[in-house]
Measured scan of single mutants.
Amino acid sequence: MASQGTKRSYEQMETDGERQNATEIRASVGKMIDGIGRFYIQMCTELKLSDYEGRLIQNSLTIERMVLSAFDERRNKYLEEHPSAGKDPKKTGGPIYKRVDRKWMRELVLYDKEEIRRIWRQANNGDDATAGLTHMMIWHSNLNDTTYQRTRALVRTGMDPRMCSLMQGSTLPRRSGAAGAAVKGVGTMVMELIRMIKRGINDRNFWRGENGRKTRSAYERMCNILKGKFQTAAQRAMMDQVRESRNPGNAEIEDLIFLARSALILRGSVAHKSCLPACVYGPAVASGYDFEKEGYSLVGIDPFKLLQNSQVYSLIRPNENPAHKSQLVWMACNSAAFEDLRVLSFIRGTKVSPRGKLSTRGVQIASNENMDAMESSTLELRSRYWAIRTRSGGNTNQQRASAGQISVQPAFSVQRNLPFDKPTIMAAFTGNTEGRTSDMRAEIIRMMEGAKPEEMSFQGRGVFELSDERAANPIVPSFDMSNEGSYFFGDNAEEYDN
């Protein structure tokens, strides 16, 4: 993207840094990872977990959730003011799984939030270390993106479920800051804005008074975040219109849905970061690795190297396929839920299948599930090659597409044709070009129609051997075009429920 120079890199967003050079960025990201790792080690000690239990991804998720809940100030305040039966607002906890007599047992633990905050700050040299908290939120978000298709949420806001490739980060909490905003897809931002506008339509006082002023500035800020994701002048001009509207209503909703559809071809720039579970960072720190000293990046080879040398386990339900569970977590670790499966298959070195073909449910185990038949197995999170994460949407291309997802959002900077089903997408653009945004709409449609099938995206960008740390010898991959490109292809993934 041309304006790259004016933006802070995501590592800076990730670490609240002012302008830093590459070495400083690597050190501050490393410091953040160190903090998460030290916190995780301490929690495993508190909970008396064995090494194996500490490497269980379900335990990692519970521990991450506990610290996120302990620092969720708004919710904590709300819980104190609106006490609900049987919930102690000062405590947080969740299921911890232990191996007892050759069987997995679930144990519900409860801790004072104050105590968890103390352990977290102690692991982070006394700081609140917001960057580390956001990092864990993005890992949870990436896992949700890989596990669930947001059909219901899309339909509720009037969008087409086939636009799911635009929904990265749709389950990120509001408090995820600049680093969170960077990884949100165009569809996620559109959905947040539509929800806001709908509230304004239904509630006369939404934009009024002292609160209304705050609401208005939040609305304009979200519009600017979305505008910054678009790469064409016409899309940005249309966002200006939406932002400046005196009284946002149905016309703005129409414009936003139009823009979301246009992003299936004229893709937005959305950041991709490899955020790993805390149970990967903990053992690495415990083994003596100093992330701050060595430096770390979320968008280069580092996460690949770390996963190459990590042992992570997962509980497996009786009829689940461990290899499929591994694929789910591998995609989440690489922030690749909406990437082209052919690119992923090449990088991973084994075939990556669409969601609907995987015999696996989510990673988390519900409290009512029976533990008797639970097994555990090693997650295979290694890769054959590594590639640089991208934040450009890439230019655009036609490809055989599917009944489910009709476009992709690249996660890796790797040369390819970008699949999208042009006739299906263009069919949504018939007729409606009147109104105050008509010239911009016409211009956007013209650009979409001009998108050429034979153009290559990320020209000359390749993948790298894991021994090639400096990215000196790019390998331009070859793809098996007979395979499906979309992950949520004609899909039956479970729906995400809060």
Rank of each mutant, 00 (worst) to 15 (best):
D145K: 07
W207R: 08
N205L: 01
V155D: 10
Y97D: 07
F489I: 06
S297M: 03
E449I: 03
S3W: 11
K452H: 12
K98Q: 14
E107Q: 08
Q405R: 05
K77F: 00
K305V: 07
G268S: 15
H135A: 09
A411W: 01
E455Y: 04
A427M: 15
S170T: 09
L226M: 11
S482R: 05
G404K: 08
R106F: 04
T62E: 10
Y148S: 05
P173A: 14
V343T: 06
I425L: 05
A278H: 04
G158T: 10
K98M: 15
N492A: 05
M238K: 02
P161K: 06
A179F: 10
V242D: 09
R208D: 00
T23M: 08
T232G: 01
H82S: 12
R174H: 04
R361S: 03
R117S: 12
M189W: 06
G362V: 05
F258E: 08
N144Q: 07
L47D: 10
Q58E: 10
F464I: 09
E107M: 07
S28V: 00
E53T: 09
R261S: 03
T378Q: 06
L379P: 08
D421Q: 10
A411I: 00
H135G: 06
P423D: 04
P322M: 11
M374D: 04
Y78I: 07
S217C: 09
A428M: 03
I388G: 04
M426T: 15
E81L: 08
E244W: 02
S367R: 03
L264Q: 15
K305F: 13
N250A: 13
P423T: 13
V352Y: 10
P248H: 08
T130F: 03
G268M: 07
M238S: 12
Q399N: 00
N144V: 14
T45F: 06
V29H: 01
A218Q: 05
F429N: 01
A233Q: 08
K98I: 06
A27S: 10
S262A: 15
Y296M: 11
L133M: 12
L328M: 14
M13T: 03
G86R: 12
I406Y: 09
T424C: 11
Y111W: 05
M239P: 02
F458E: 01
V299L: 07
E455C: 14
N473M: 13
P283N: 04
T424D: 15
V352G: 03
E434T: 13
D128H: 15
T171M: 14
P277Q: 11
I63M: 14
E11W: 11
A271C: 07
K48S: 11
M426D: 00
I96D: 05
E107L: 04
E11C: 10
G485H: 08
A284C: 14
I116T: 10
E494M: 14
R19L: 03
R355F: 09
L61E: 10
E11S: 12
R8D: 00
F71K: 11
T433S: 08
M447G: 06
V476T: 05
S245I: 06
Y281P: 10
L110K: 12
A131F: 02
V190W: 00
A181M: 14
I257A: 04
R152V: 03
F230Q: 09
V100C: 11
M448R: 07
R221K: 15
A403Q: 14
